[in-house]
Nucleic acid binder design. Sequence first.
DNA 1: TCCCGTGATGACACCTGGTGCCATCAACCG
DNA 2: CGGTTGATGGCACCAGGTGTCATCACGGGA
Lengths: 190, 190
Amino acid sequence: MSRWEPNARERLVRAAVESFLERGYDAVTVAEITERAGLTKRTFFRHFGDKREVLFAGQDVLSGLLADAIAAAPASATPIEAVSAALTAVETAFDADRREWAQKVRQVVAGQPDLRERELLKRAKLRGAMASALRARGVPDPSASLAAEIGGLAFTTGFARWVEPSNERGFGELAREALAELVQAAAALG
Amino acid sequence: MSRWEPNARERLVRAAVESFLERGYDAVTVAEITERAGLTKRTFFRHFGDKREVLFAGQDVLSGLLADAIAAAPASATPIEAVSAALTAVETAFDADRREWAQKVRQVVAGQPDLRERELLKRAKLRGAMASALRARGVPDPSASLAAEIGGLAFTTGFARWVEPSNERGFGELAREALAELVQAAAALG
DNA sequence: TCCCGTGATGACACCTGGTGCCATCAACCG
DNA sequence: CGGTTGATGGCACCAGGTGTCATCACGGGA
């Protein structure tokens, strides 16, 4: 491993979010973050593709978790059941630490168009991963896209409720609940 | 109006897309675009918030058109019927010139993550505008979000088919067709 | 006719995000 | 003990984006 302080990436993340919370996202330069972390600007961009990514890098594993869970669902499962299983599977990644982190990120992202744009990109990747996994199961394309879209909406809704300070319930429960509401609404559409 | 050449913005757009098609998006600097248009870098950023926006600025009116059409739909219309009316309403903006433009943009955007991100942002704004307009009609929230999401998917699908070189049909027809397929798939979900 | 306000542009300096390139240094390996 | 590897430092450099002031043409009013 590394012979310096072996947690350079983590130090950068901490330094970044602390600085952002103190003074706002765009008032903080990358040079200030790296100085706070005891590193250099060049190292920052070796760990993160750009300045925004330091806030969203953790989301990249979710796509894989969702896709794997959809692939692992029993062959008899409907698309929505597979999506539900996927929402349950990612719950393991959503512990108390992650919740605290999400609350900080939400605070930093609020009212920052650049960051909201990146957030949307990550959500789109989640939907895309779910849609691909569903197609790999043999679900034809209008249904696969639709189920992935609904799954993404359930994820977003469940996540928003989970992050809420007054919430006491788990992510999986909230997301499945949101999914059930959406399926019910879908049935009442026509 | 302007006393110079009164079409500065249009000249910038033309110069930009021509340069992008010739040499690729990121090989072209803003200074080169403005030089080609006979203007300066500073003027470019007075017309467009950033370099990407020169390709997507035209999409901003669509949100308004969709929202207005949803608001103008008869009170008896279901959410999906209102969305269908909205897709029909924006057809007026999709003439042959726009189609040619969209084909060029698609070519430039292909494989350019920055530009795909901006494209996703614009699509998200469309969905958001539709969802808000539906809520303003009194549609409660799981249904409003869902209908907007389905409408966005229908828009995307219809648009992709409309831009296809082999296509001969109009945007409204294609989008409504995609919407009908999605509604049918939604009914078969549960 | 003259003058003044207005709005768009030019010109310039400046900052910061982001990259290429090479040096450095610790760990590991034979 | 010497070579390799992998992460970091240091530096120059480019390009996107902004603040600020000057400029210039047009329209309107006296």
